[in-house]
Design a protein around this nucleic acid. Structure first.
Lengths: 252, 252
DNA sequence: GGCGTTTCTTGACCCAGATCAATCTGCGCG
DNA sequence: CGCGCAGATTGATCTGGGTCAAGAAACGCC
């Protein structure tokens, strides 16, 4: 019950940015009160997405960026043969849709992994605001840059990491992101299926399962279905032989 | 001799953006003459990088973004054990350094694969300009978004593609980028080593070599060291079973 | 609360591509 | 012009993780 339900509790926060517990991670980070209200004014907060419901699909016109407010999203590229490639999972406070700016059309799809709420920011109006508020501009650039660095760390992981390193890195990334959001770094619930995890990490479902079992046999984690307990973050980190303990997925 | 030397010829272009043959691909794309001159005014154009020389290294302070003017760059993450993970190759007109904005520090290294010239744009001053010139802002966002989409396409390739698909996609990406720059799409020189290609594509050098040989046996390409001739782009495209013929690396 | 469906786990086997090893090629340089 | 060497190719062998197949555990959902 832990993480998933605790995350869902965030649905009950006041909607305004300045009341939002995520403001320090999200786009309004570091804004003056007045500027935060201006940002707030262009945002809309549509009804929650149900599990499996799409926020947008590849090919949709691009109108808005989204920030996850509660719950979690899966972003993926649908392939013609009905399969998909999972590109990432997004937790509260994270921005989604940046890759659509180029073609003014979404190049991937995003769906809720559980009941999920988002803040919708019309891109045109956001751009006006960004042009007007230097600190917003600066912070917006940082968030995009972070996204780039995250993808690059992922390229490193897929290019060099073996199955164990991939799963360990994945768990540590979630752990850190939950911690940043005020949740336990050592126990949480996975909102995504084993299939999604494997897809994301370039592994077969069976391999994900086997790696979970192995980590459990070694006493590093306890896994029961969606529930994960990390007993030894240090040992988990030691499994990874890739650079940079720094950013989210930046290994180490 | 073809692509490499022809690319180097670009060194002789007039330095100002408005005289630059790459302007239509690069940051000044679509700017009014006057705005282009303003952008021009903040740029500096340092002496050419020699082959193997670094533009920046992971850990360096972030001051400027760079646009490749001629030649080519390899961007990579250095690993503690002396190995590296190649994250991309950059051709003239492409922006480098965007992933450093977040931490105000470069997270990867960039070195010249051949004699290479760049335009240097101090980030602070660029930000001022971007805030002032909406069309520059818009275009800058598009370039960043494109970079994100490129990384995502790469995640797809590494997550789902086999060795043949990876190499075919790589060749087609280069082909398209050379074409966009006014060079032959069917014959060019690779400025990077087999080792770099393998590293980038998550393959062993030997596998890259074998795939080149196989493609050659099948009559799809002729490979002689750095020189590549693509005899049948259609057949090369048909080898790829991943989504989206759209953007650079977006397969298909 | 039983039943069908989906998700996960585990075992057995196999293969694409890694690794190891040997040779070849072309280039830089004295 | 020949020597040395890094990079590239090719062959032989090995293996991590994919694939296939069979249960087991949860989760709706009547």
């Amino acid at each position: 019950m832990s993480a998933a339900s605790r995350v869902i509790d965030l649905t009950n926060i006041k909607v305004a940015c300045r009341e939002c517990s995520l403001a320090r991670l999200c786009l309004p980070m570091g804004l003056e009160r007045a500027d935060m209200d201006r940002l707030d004014a262009i945002m809309s907060r549509p009804r929650p997405l149900r599990r499996g419901e799409h926020l947008f699909r590849a090919g949709d016109n691009f109108r808005s960026l989204f920030a996850v407010r509660s719950g979690s999203l899966k972003v993926y590229t649908p392939c013609q043969d009905g399969t998909e490639q999972v590109l990432g999972f997004h937790l509260p406070g994270e921005l989604v849709g940046l890759d659509a700016i180029e073609h003014e059309r979404h190049v991937c799809s995003a769906k809720g992994l559980e009941t999920t709420t988002v803040c919708t920011m019309p891109y045109e109006r956001l751009q006006d605001l960004v042009g007007d508020i230097p600190s917003l501009h600066h912070h917006f650039m940082k968030l995009i840059s972070k996204e780039l660095a995250r993808d690059e760390a992922m390229l490193l992981l897929l290019g060099k990491g073996n199955a164990e390193e991939r799963l360990a890195t994945f768990l540590l990334s979630l752990s850190q992101r939950f911690r940043e959001r005020g949740f336990s770094e050592s126990e949480f619930n996975l909102s995504m299926s084993r299939h999604d995890i494997g897809n994301y990490l370039g592994l077969a479902v069976e391999t994900v399962s086997r790696m979970f079992s192995r980590l459990q046999d070694e006493g590093v984690v306890t896994v029961h279905r969606k529930n994960i307990q990390l007993h030894d973050l240090g040992r988990l980190r030691a499994m990874i032989h890739l650079p940079e303990p720094g950013s989210p997925m930046r290994c180490g």
